[in-house]
Amino acid sequence: MVVVVMGVSGSGKTTVGMALAEKLAVPYAEADEFHPRSNIDKMTSGVPLTDADRKPWLRAIAVWIGEHAESGGVVTCSALKRSYRDLLRSGGPAWFLHLHGSREVIAGRMSGRSGHFMPPSLLDSQFADLQPLSPDEAGFTADVTEPVDRIVAEAADLLRS
């Protein structure tokens, strides 16, 4: 199974995803690397992506999920909407680790980071699109204020059970 570490920008997907992949000894992929240049340029200029912009990006991640369905893996992806997660699952089985936090906590994190193309001005658009996991979706929601090692340990335990 592939784990998709999801949440709005600034929620800690990369940090948690890399730590979880290391704990599970599986490959890791960063969703930002799947974006076409046009998406990165759009976000860098402060323009939110549309569903049409996201579709090729999500399809590319779904392919990666399919390629790692048997061996397992961890990939990050905002996966904000149920329809996006459905598209990701079209590649193969996926378990979602939703990193959830308040707008204030996430905004504080975003304002303190540098070198990322996603400006803090787009955070509200991400929260507007966010649809939490539904009860019928395999996964777990973690509080971003918890220590990374605790989130990773709990997710690993849930995956093993």
Rank of each mutant, 00 (worst) to 15 (best):
V105E: 15
E30M: 03
R85T: 00
R109D: 10
P135V: 14
K13Y: 08
G7C: 12
R160M: 12
A29M: 11
E30H: 02
V74D: 03
V2G: 03
L97I: 09
T14K: 07
A25L: 08
L80R: 00
A21S: 08
G112N: 01
L58Q: 06
A156R: 00
W64Q: 10
E146A: 11
A107N: 10
M110T: 09
V47T: 12
P36R: 10
Q131L: 07
P147R: 12
A62E: 02
A29Y: 07
M118L: 05
F117M: 11
M6R: 04
R37N: 10
G66Y: 06
P48K: 04
P147L: 02
T15V: 13
H35L: 07
L80T: 13
H68Y: 05
Y84I: 04
P27T: 11
A156I: 11
G10R: 02
A155R: 00
M1F: 11
K23N: 03
R113Q: 11
H100I: 02
P119M: 06
P27C: 11
G72M: 06
P93A: 15
T44P: 05
W95P: 00
V75H: 03
S111L: 15
L159D: 02
L20D: 02
A155C: 03
A79C: 14
R82S: 14
D53G: 04
E22N: 07
S78L: 09
G115P: 00
P56Q: 11
L88C: 13
D32G: 04
A69H: 00
M118N: 06
M6C: 15
F96L: 12
P48N: 06
R85G: 01
S125N: 12
V8A: 11
I106E: 03
L130Q: 01
V26Q: 08
S90I: 04
T44Q: 12
D86L: 15
E67N: 14
G73I: 02
V2H: 06
R54G: 06
H35S: 11
V74A: 08
A69W: 01
R82E: 14
S114A: 02
A155T: 01
L123W: 00
R54M: 14
T44M: 05
V4P: 00
R54L: 13
A31S: 14
R37Q: 15
C77N: 13
W64C: 12
A69P: 03
R103A: 15
E33L: 15
G46C: 02
L99K: 01
Q126H: 14
K81F: 04
R37G: 05
R150S: 12
A153K: 06
K23D: 04
S90M: 04
S125E: 05
A31T: 05
I65E: 10
G139E: 01
G72R: 07
R59V: 14
V75E: 09
M110E: 07
L88M: 11
P93E: 14
A128C: 09
S111Q: 15
T76R: 06
G66F: 05
F127V: 13
E137V: 14
V152Q: 03
T50H: 12
M118I: 00
D124C: 10
L80F: 10
H100D: 15
D53L: 08
A79F: 09
A128Y: 05
H116S: 01
P132W: 05
F96T: 08
P27V: 06
D143Q: 13
S111C: 09
A128N: 12
V16R: 00
E137Y: 13
P119H: 07
M118F: 11
G12V: 04
L88S: 04
E30C: 02
